[in-house]
Design a protein around this nucleic acid. Structure first.
Lengths: 148, 148
DNA sequence: ATACAACAATTGTATAGACAAATGTAAATG
DNA sequence: CATTTACATTTGTCTATACAATTGTTGTAT
């Protein structure tokens, strides 16, 4: 991936600028790939993330703030995101008995089934995306990412 | 930045999954910072990108497809993006005389002035974002990013 | 107990972006 | 030269997201 070539600039970019742009380009690519992988399921990355969080609760219900806390990309409107998962039948929502301000959200059996299928696809996509990385390079990348 | 801690998961993530999530987290951080830097100017990253592309033309007008080609994040609707820049007076648009299908887009003096101010802020933001990286680490990161 | 502050989620609204269809223009074909 | 095809941009529509204001509930202080 030659950054200058992709954005078709004739000038040599300063290293820092180049890094930031390079990062954005890779980020786009990753998003596209995962987006495409989830497309057949009619689910967004965010929705997938929420399903995974709910499964990770092992039956223990989660409320909205818990979900938000754990999401990779926080967003302002988890209510409507959950709404969509309910419509699809992947998730249930109840009002919390002990604190009626709160809400209890659970993944359904249908949600679990579909999530399992998506898992495979997602792991596959990861493999494809990272196919040119050795174990060592992945570790190196993680160390560098920590510096942000 | 401890990934597991941030997304509050108790399990140890597989290296590849961890990398992808790590990447998304950093990407969010970068977007937030640049977004915040541009906020006082009431301009989006995309709009800023277009202004920079137009300045890079050195007076030579650009048409929509040229702009699209050079944008870091391609998008489906550059027309409306340019509309917004016109409203702000940062950009002009004319119909191309030699090929009336095309359009000629130019940055205005006002656009150049405001862009110069934004440049400083953006470079500053880059510096802050990358403050913990040595020259060598930045080069290393760019090499790793190339593997995507 | 009553008033007030804090909490948790929801709703309204405005803006951004994705995607497909439509418009207008130029080039190619017969 | 009329018709078709390709091109460049624009427009319509639907969905996603950000941000602020609102609703309903609980906890706290007097």
């Amino acid at each position: 991936m030659n950054v200058e070539q992709i954005i078709k600039t004739e000038r040599t970019l300063p290293l820092k600028t180049r890094t930031v742009i390079h990062f954005a380009l890779v980020s786009n690519k990753i998003n596209e790939q995962f987006g495409a992988a989830l497309k057949p399921y009619g689910i967004s990355k965010q929705q997938f993330n929420v399903l995974r969080i709910l499964r990770g609760q092992h039956g223990k219900p989660a409320n909205l703030s818990t979900i938000n806390e754990r999401m990779v990309t926080k967003m302002s409107n988890t209510t409507r995101l959950v709404d969509k998962l309910i419509t699809k039948g992947y998730v249930e929502r109840w009002i919390c008995e002990t604190n009626r301000r709160k809400v209890e959200i659970l993944i359904t059996e249908k949600g679990k089934t579909v999530l399992e299928k998506m898992d495979t696809i997602m792991l596959n996509t990861e493999d494809i995306l990272l196919k040119d990385f050795s174990e060592k390079e992945l570790e190196q990348l993680n160390i560098l990412l920590d510096k942000f």
